[in-house]
């Protein structure tokens, strides 16, 4: 486990150093003001939700030049948690995410276009199960400002629907369950 974390940390260190800009933010995973959740239809009758407990990321964002924003997020796939051990074990197995082989899922933005102060379309490369695909999804800025402890924060939310088969995950969960919705809720702390 430590090896994976080290790998994630290293990958982050590399992406972070490449991204240092005017207004850089680190996603507050340390104090968990950020989450990556997924939901998928169960048999077509209900939503099954879960999350990834371990991920890291950073973004750059400046209100004055919002379209220069960038974001990169790395997810430790084996931190998948759907609140059921038997299911988690199955989802992490070779039938689905194959986490022993594909330890990370990753998103790196290529273009962020704001349509107004708060709404933007994010484009980028998402890697899951060893397959990288271009995806595009809307995000909304929730708010920004000083925090009570001397820092500065900004938060966003975004949702994207992914077709599992696009990422080589073809286990038959039924016709209603071919797509998974990912939602990202993040709060970044401005780096000084």
């Amino acid at each position: 486990m430590n090896k994976t974390l080290a790998t994630v940390a290293l990958a982050l260190a590399l992406t972070t150093s490449a991204m240092i800009n005017a207004a850089d933010y680190v996603i507050d995973t340390k104090d968990a003001h950020a989450s990556i959740q997924f939901k998928i239809k169960h048999l077509g009758y209900s939503w099954l939700t879960g999350r990834f407990n371990k991920f890291e990321g950073q973004f750059s964002y400046d209100e004055k030049a919002p379209n220069d924003a960038k974001i990169a997020v790395t997810i430790a796939t084996k931190s998948l948690d759907s609140n059921h051990a038997d299911r988690d074990k199955h989802l992490k197995s070779k039938d689905f995410l194959e986490v022993s082989k594909f330890k990370e899922a990753k998103f790196v933005s290529t273009k962020i276009q704001f349509s107004d102060d708060d709404n933007a379309q994010v484009e980028g490369d998402f890697t899951l199960h060893g397959v990288t695909k271009k995806i595009s999804f809307p995000v909304v800025k929730i708010g920004e400002g000083n925090d009570p402890w001397g820092g500065y924060r900004v938060g966003f939310s975004g949702n994207v629907s992914l077709k599992l088969a696009d990422y080589g995950i073809d286990y038959n969960l039924g016709p209603a369950s071919t797509h998974v919705d990912l939602s990202l809720h993040i709060e970044g702390i401005k780096q000084k």
Binding site: N83, H84, A85, K89, K92
Partner: peptide, 28 residues
């Protein structure tokens, strides 16, 4: 099966309680 602290049902007659999880990714 008890990595999420859920008990195990034995033929629907008896429920064997779980222990607190011992390690990360215990189910794997």
């Amino acid at each position: 099966s008890t990595a999420d602290e859920r008990p195990i049902e034995v033929f629907g007659l008896l429920s064997v309680p779980a222990l607190p999880p011992l390690i990360d990714n215990q189910e794997d």
